[in-house]
Design a binder for these strands. Structure first.
Lengths: 168, 168, 168, 168
DNA sequence: TTTT
DNA sequence: TTTT
């Protein structure tokens, strides 16, 4: 279906140190639990109330997984941009069950640390090596030129070069 | 600054057929004008009112430019995801002027056609070849199911080369 | 927790005519199923492939429910902005089950029709009466120009009453 | 135009203490300068590079202005959700000039503090009194019930009450 | 300059 | 169960 968008944006805190698993062929997958919450004052009692929502975030991306592994700890505040995905599985009784997760996998998925812990700063799944919308990974060799778009693991440049002289 | 986000999401109609320019080294740049509008009923008179906002969108990405060139015409309804950028220029009197544009260049930038015209359907700046948030590039493997996540390798160029001098 | 964000943005098609239920005290709740999908060309076979994701959207808002009731039909293309919520329930075996839904309830929730069917055009949960991000409620004054900002007064109910017991 | 969206999401730091002006009839308007930036490592030199983008944010909303006035200081990290607006003005030579700003005014506009300074936590422009997606203002009396949607300055409840018994 |  |  052309013309569809599936985007989740979360800012919240990580509930526990992330789990990093590996697939059989060695690729990492990180699982995070992120809490968002809303607070308000009760209309009648005047008491402060809060509701917390927990989100399961699954990171299928080597670069982002590295950032998660190195920098994301319990309590970290993150900005997450991913997609909603519901997967079907079977419980021990053989019944169909569904789990909905926020998946960071494709283009446009991003994970940024908002509390300054770690040096990673941010990362997106664009390059497979922790390149970021905001902060290219330290192991980021070079943005891919337009003319060589698909080097394995290539990243990209995200903004015009300030030092270029670009009259327009 | 780690931990920053600069994102613009627009759904609107294209005001005129796009202009496609080329840099000296041949890379395309597309310019679009997109209208968004709000309507409301006047509180006093009860009349229906409307306010239209016009946005300048600049596409620095070969893949997205191809989509624009082939499919985007005056009147098309688009979903756009880009970044805010303000550039400084000088008018004929030599005075500093500033123009703010929605730039589709970096990671996470997307352009999707919402009215079914053209076959392009959608595209994002991830792959430099019209690959899409919704339409993976030709050399891009399948999206990973939850149980077999995508290889990290798929990168791509996202835009202009940081090191180039690009007069246009 | 101050400083959290929980936002889902979807553009997709409605899979079936919406169901509208009512709470005991008469407030409507609309349920929608919305499909988003991604297409790509298989890296090896070159075949076009597609993956569709289905989302359950729950509208707790009188104004938005009216729009849904009047205008949203099977096949409609919608822009949805809401929140992720997971609720716990018990199956017939008494086991805990969880369902994650995109809830349109609070501030910032929006539903806009993208295919021009119906006159409703758009709506947000801001005003409780089908007012919109793009379409101010009837008792809502004009959007303020930059030089004459809007009165602060315009509020509204955004959803279900916190203090109510709402079985449904 | 039905079906349009105009949304800007920024996470960045405030460049200077905000300016709060007042209209002739006493309503506040806050002006903020917010920096977002991207960093990357230069492909050739390997040097770390950074590009900062400055955004002008204008808050037309009493509740949000109060939050800005009380809590937002130079250096604060904010999450902002607003709209792009370009306004026309004339310079001293009588020439037309245009300025594009991120305006927080209508439903869906939000401002949330991300660095924990201040108690305000967050605020959105929904209620005119600093109600928030995440953190209702302290002077927030009560969420508006669905049955009285438009009390002056009324806000809303943003989530289901945790303590309600809501089987569904 | 779009669209409804 | 949608859509292209």
């Amino acid at each position: 279906m052309a013309g569809s968008v599936n985007k989740v944006i979360l800012i919240g805190n990580v509930g526990a140190d992330p789990e990093i698993r590996r697939t059989q062929d060695g690729r990492p997958i990180a699982n995070l639990r992120i809490a968002t919450s809303e607070t308000w004052r009760d209309r009648n009692s005047g008491e402060r109330r809060e509701k917390t929502e927990w989100h399961t975030v699954v990171v299928f991306n080597e670069g982002l997984c590295k950032v998660v592994e190195q920098y994301v700890k319990k309590g970290a505040k993150l900005y997450i941009e991913g997609q909603l995905q519901t997967r079907k599985w079977q419980d021990q009784q053989g019944q169909d069950r569904y789990s909905t997760e926020v998946v960071l996998q494709g283009f446009g998925s991003t994970l940024t640390m908002l509390d300054g812990r770690g040096e990673g700063g941010g990362a997106s799944s664009g390059g497979g090596r922790g390149s970021s919308n905001n902060d290219y990974g330290d192991d980021y060799g070079a943005p891919a030129p337009s003319s060589s778009p698909s080097r394995g693991g290539g990243g990209g440049n995200f903004s015009r070069d300030l030092d270029d002289d670009i009259p327009f």
